[in-house]
Design a protein around this nucleic acid. Structure first.
Length: 114
DNA sequence: CTAGTGACTGTTT
DNA sequence: AAAACAGCCACTA
């Protein structure tokens, strides 16, 4: 397979459960700035046997990127994320301030208020 | 090789 | 807020 894709998969594999990362962010972390679209291509051609948290990859707006023709996948991805504790707001958006993966910020469960 | 396309993003209307 | 534009670059026809 394409070695570039491999890099992306490795980065994606490090996304903590209950967090999400954007395409651009992943590209940058893989050492390939401005290749957000490549990440999309990589995911699209993810080998079936490979198990990676593809559902934790969302676009910069915090929404599930629409792909060609499908509706069921969008709901599926959202379902997976919600099971991990990711919350979608009324507009179908994820608050990246809270759920966005920032390697510098402490991982782990977000303590509720106080 | 040229053109079109896209699981994208940031800026400008 | 939403749409259009302009960069972006691997892949396909």
């Amino acid at each position: 397979m394409n070695p570039l894709h491999q890099r992306f998969y490795e980065v994606i594999a490090r996304i903590p459960k209950g967090r999400v990362a954007t395409y651009g962010q992943i590209a940058a972390m893989a050492g390939l700035p401005r290749r957000a679209r490549m990440v999309g291509q990589a995911l699209r051609s993810t080998p079936e046997g490979l198990e990676i948290p593809w559902q934790r990859v969302v676009n910069a707006q915090g929404t599930v990127s629409p792909r060609a023709g499908l509706g069921w996948e969008e709901g599926y991805q959202r379902h997976l994320l919600e099971e991990e504790g990711v919350v979608f707001n009324a507009r179908g958006r994820i608050d990246l301030e809270r759920f966005g993966w920032d390697p510098d910020r402490r991982p782990g469960p977000r303590r509720r208020k106080s």
